[in-house]
Design a binder for these strands. Sequence first.
DNA 1: CCTGAAGATGACAACGCTGTCACCCAGCCC
DNA 2: GGGCTGGGTGACAGCGTTGTCATCTTCAGG
Lengths: 319, 319
Amino acid sequence: MKTVSRVMNREPNVRPETRARVVEAAKALRYIPDVSARSLAGHRSFNLALVYNNPSENYMMGVISGVLEACASERYHLILSPVALDEGGLLAEIDDLVANSRPDGLLLTPPLTDAPRLLDHLAAVAIPFASISPRRQQAALAVAMDEPEAAEQMVEHLVALGHRRIAHVIGHPAHGASQWRLDGYRRGLARAGIPINPAFEVQGEFSFESGVAAARQLLDLDPMPSAIFAANDDMAAGVIFVAHERGLRLPDDLSVSGFDDTPLSRQLFPALTTIHQPTREMGRLATIGLIAHIKEPKATGTIRVTHTLKVRQSTGPAP
Amino acid sequence: MKTVSRVMNREPNVRPETRARVVEAAKALRYIPDVSARSLAGHRSFNLALVYNNPSENYMMGVISGVLEACASERYHLILSPVALDEGGLLAEIDDLVANSRPDGLLLTPPLTDAPRLLDHLAAVAIPFASISPRRQQAALAVAMDEPEAAEQMVEHLVALGHRRIAHVIGHPAHGASQWRLDGYRRGLARAGIPINPAFEVQGEFSFESGVAAARQLLDLDPMPSAIFAANDDMAAGVIFVAHERGLRLPDDLSVSGFDDTPLSRQLFPALTTIHQPTREMGRLATIGLIAHIKEPKATGTIRVTHTLKVRQSTGPAP
DNA sequence: CCTGAAGATGACAACGCTGTCACCCAGCCC
DNA sequence: GGGCTGGGTGACAGCGTTGTCATCTTCAGG
């Protein structure tokens, strides 16, 4: 019995021949270990929890599908935990989650990756977690993209098209990505020798509506920017909306670009130039890394993934 | 010990006074039943599986969030199971799911709600399931909207704006909703005394790209339709894309409408007139119903939810 | 050939609940 | 008052694994 257990769990110290016999017998009998019994006896749940509070459904769907893929191959289950952001509620919800579902590990997405009290709390209860795009690596494991570099590259693209009056719609202040992308934007301008114009940096919060508001503000300026780089696709959609509203031709009168490459970016008119963020891959890698870390606590580190500039029709030569 | 079990499971035959004492003690000791032990001893997993194969991420996110809400309140876990559609793979994946995760019930979304071999299989292995928008009620429990009625109402709206040349982009042939919406479209025309024009019914498959293709076909007609009603929002986005491409003014030259009221519909320009489908609520109700059915197998039936016509800026008076 | 170490195997007791069944007791009927 | 019914309570044996530890086997080295 114990030998079967060893074989099913890929543990060492079983003769290859014995192992083969067990595997064969299991197949013949269609034997599949019972998850409940395994977790009761083994003190682990084979559950991972994906904790999120993210305005963008498209982003989450990408992450989720990657996480699911990895979970399936590692025979773990995924618990989705949408949570509130306010600190009191957040900690209570996490406690609830941990008490009830006893996940073996957590996956955090921005902005939860940087909620100090949450991180302290997780450290206190000693539950391993992996972070996707954290501001700083505080998790055992992190998956990240070079966001400033990507944003800089977007500015470069616009500069190459002849733009000099390039505006930026900043993301939600609580997300690390907002700062990174803003930094990249500024670096891009600096590299092109374009001075920073404070009026061209408008605060948004990653939502479509905030993009609309920012665009109205920017397009009221005189001279108005010839290109607007929004920190995500949803806000870029808001910018495009306002541009259409005002009868501007895109990209002739105004270039617009986004960040994330969500499905939305292909469905807008004109199709949106954006940075492809491999959300699915990030979810997958974070999950695989987390599971490895659970099995072998010294497996830690940061995994880097690469972005791609997707040039579509929403950007063109400066007027 | 058994009495505690009864209290925690809200079983009858415990004196109110005893019950209160148990509840109090549980709170004082922060006692929370162990899920693994409960499922091992009780032969149920407290897992529900949401099985889906759906092109629309927005639709699924709506359903998922409703399902999660219900799961949280009923203390169940959700397992997400994206599956292949081809029959061989599908059944194998379901078997795998059932063998490994032993869910207490399944939630099906279109088009899986109508895959005959899948339904037979589920009946054979005697696992309860609930269907969201099934073509016919074959599940113990179904949640549905009056889709033909909703589509008819959309046509009515267009007719009221003076449109007579109203085209329809049909959804994916495997989805029951496609037929319902087509039926509703035809009923709407019939009621307005407008003859059906076969050239105005173009097959799509619910994707943005198929909407683009359908739109090109429809806008090449002479005379072209003055309004295009697409069977979902993604295809409507495709129609809007092509209309912009051709320099048509919306809604002055062409009215466009969709179905589902996904977030996309508010982010397009002009904002899309569509039918609001309460996906979140449908997910929630299906889940609650399924859990009720698991506890009490004679709880069956169809739950109706109501739609709403959302008039936005993509439809206007006929030219 | 013997010894010892390391590898391989298996016996057994948990793990923390629930189903079953026995028991107790109050209240009711005759 | 005796017998019966049914609600309330709890004892006990699993549920199907894994961790621990004992035992057996193998093989290298003396």
